[in-house]
């Protein structure tokens, strides 16, 4: 009797498996559909690489490779057009350097305060404020740099030009503070308390614990937050496009107007460059250089945080 019923159930399962219902088709298709969706993110990367590389190759047919990377003059318009990327590279590096001079010390000190000194209550007030700072659109920072920070700096530095690289650099630094603060704080909070207590038990002050125990232990996370910050500064667009103007000076004078790679892209696309012109292709060559720089930075950050992570 029981055997018979067993058999029937088994038959039913077999029959169920054989019948092709709407649900069973869906069951089989879903993984494929989801896989295709997941592939779109890879297609995006391929698309970026493909468009950048293809048009960059066209660009290097018109402009020799060496002239592009060693040329100190960028004059994209007119008959005697010259395409040297060095003015854009100095602009990008100077603005990023200014930003990091602001963001690294302040970000790191904020991280130390939040992770080591602040009470739970204070932390619960300060962290959301930093998050708000991180959530403000960059265009708002650009407006702020152009209409407030530059006039303010002008009072102390009379020869400051109305568009200059100093003011967007400083504002960019403020923009990056929350990123460095929160990533570094994560790294410091994951240092186990036993290590702190050990040092405190030997008579260290909190400052000594922070300096000699917590920061060395969290070093990989801290450094990778710096590198990510640099990458963010290199790719930042709207602040520099608004507040640093479009003169392609090859200079190291921070009171002057300079153009970054990102601001150049904004200027060229805003001017409706005719497709197929050298000017149009220069857009892609500059964008590709920008892409390579940020990619390298991101890979370095990943490598550091993976390679030097200390397991506790």
């Amino acid at each position: 009797m029981t055997d018979e019923r067993d058999l029937r159930v088994r038959d039913m399962i077999q029959a169920n498996k054989r019948t092709v219902t709407f649900n069973s088709i869906i069951e089989k298709c879903i993984p494929t559909i989801l896989f295709i969706i997941a592939i779109i993110s890879i297609l995006t990367t391929i698309g970026i690489l493909f468009t950048l590389i293809r048009e960059t190759i066209y660009f290097f047919r018109d402009v020799p490779f060496l002239d592009f990377f060693t040329g100190t003059k960028l004059k994209p318009l007119g008959d005697a057009a010259e395409f040297g990327i060095l003015p854009l590279l100095t602009g990008t590096f100077i603005s990023s350097a200014i930003a990091m001079l602001v963001a690294i010390p302040i970000g790191l000190m904020s991280a130390v305060f939040l992770s080591e000194y602040a009470s739970d209550k204070v932390r619960r007030i300060l962290k959301p404020i930093l998050e708000v700072l991180a959530g403000i659109p960059t265009i708002v920072y650009g407006f702020f740099a152009f209409t407030f920070v530059t006039p303010l700096l002008n009072r102390f530095i009379p020869m400051l030009e109305p568009t200059n690289i100093l003011s967007p650099g400083l504002v960019m630094g403020v923009m990056i503070i929350p990123m460095i603060a929160s990533l570094s704080e994560d790294a410091m909070s994951s240092v186990p308390n036993a290590m702190r207590e050990g040092a405190l038990g030997l008579g260290s002050t909190k400052l000594e614990v922070t300096w000699r125990v917590v920061i060395p232990a969290a070093m990989s996370g801290i450094i990778s937050s710096f590198v990510l910050g640099i990458s963010r500064a290199i790719g930042e667009t709207m602040i520099v496009a608004i507040a640093s103007g479009s003169s392609k000076n090859f200079t190291f004078d921070v009171t002057q107007s300079m153009q970054t790679m990102t601001a150049y892209i904004v200027e060229v696309t805003g001017g409706d460059a005719p497709a197929g012109s050298t000017l149009y292709y220069s857009l892609y060559a500059v964008a590709f250089t920008l892409f390579v720089f940020t990619l390298i930075m991101n890979l370095i950050a990943q490598y550091i945080s993976k390679k030097f992570r200390e397991g506790y």
Binding site: T44, T45, T51, G235, T237, I265, A287, T294, N298
Partner: peptide, 18 residues
Amino acid sequence: NISNLAGVPSIVFGILGL
């Protein structure tokens, strides 16, 4: 790939879109 895409500057996405 996704974590690398998150680090690509937004203006490069603009170039892709264009």
